[in-house]
């Protein structure tokens, strides 16, 4: 049973189709990388998977008992966050909000889960520091910990390495890979960085305003589109 299955799905803005012909399945434990150039519909797809956008055509099916509030999400950072007065702990704990429901305050379980995830990502050493004073890599780890607090099944990452230097970028990718391997969490990641994508991901979904490739990473490397796209990257 697939966690997420798209069947002939199109997404768009006000009648303009941003991405169409989506036909793919994500199974539990997969590491899917969504590739494509700017404006190829990657972010629109993520919004669609998060149910922030309804498909124009086709349907997105959630299987395996996956509920919309069980998706962990790592969004791109906004300008307002860069000078936000909040401690790392407060940010991580806010990932438990969806599980909180109508209760006004966090339970002991919520705090325990937040503490576990902070430990897993090495955030606990600076959990009382101000979010805006952390380095880019530390901020990203805090946001990852928050995303882990919101899910046990699937993690959606939107350009997790945007704006990070090369060393930290590799660190973040390795961290994501470890999470995928150790916890069996399904990962869907949007990325420009093809080299890292093929290194870590098990599946590739290539978009050019339509689905041009979906399959295993090995098959992608041998495909015409993959060879062309990666060749362009290398040159």
């Amino acid at each position: 049973m697939a966690l997420i299955a798209c069947q002939g799905v199109s997404f768009g803005y006000e009648g303009n189709i941003a991405v169409s012909g989506l036909d793919f399945e994500v199974h539990s434990g997969d590491y899917l990388c969504v590739a494509g150039e700017n404006g190829s519909g990657k972010s629109t797809l993520i919004k669609g998977l998060l149910r922030l956008k309804t498909p124009l055509k086709g349907s997105v099916l959630m299987g395996g008992g996956l509920k919309p509030n069980e998706i962990g999400y790592l969004p791109q950072q906004t300008a307002a966050q860069k000078d936000f007065p909040a401690s790392a702990y407060e940010v991580v704990l806010s990932g438990r909000l969806a599980a909180q429901g109508v209760r006004p305050f966090y339970s002991r379980t919520d705090k325990k889960i937040a503490a576990e995830n902070m430990k897993r990502l090495g955030v606990d050493s600076f959990k009382n520091r101000c979010y805006r004073e952390l380095s880019g890599g530390q901020q990203q780890r805090v946001l990852l910990a928050r995303a882990l607090c919101a899910t046990k099944k699937i993690l959606l990452l939107d350009e997790p390495a945007a704006g990070l230097d090369p060393v930290v970028t590799q660190e973040v990718y390795r961290l994501i890979e470890t999470i995928n391997r150790e916890t069996g969490l399904t990962i869907i990641m949007v990325s420009h960085d093809m080299q890292s994508a093929i290194k870590y991901a098990s599946h590739i979904l290539h978009l050019q305003n339509a689905q041009v490739f979906f399959g295993k990473t090995e098959d992608y490397l041998n495909s015409e589109i993959g060879a062309k796209f990666l060749g362009g990257e290398r040159a």
């Binding site: 998706i71 969004p75 928050r146």
Partner: peptide
Amino acid sequence: FDENFAKATGV
């Protein structure tokens, strides 16, 4: 702090 994240997790 993060409206997009909150929205995505069903808040």
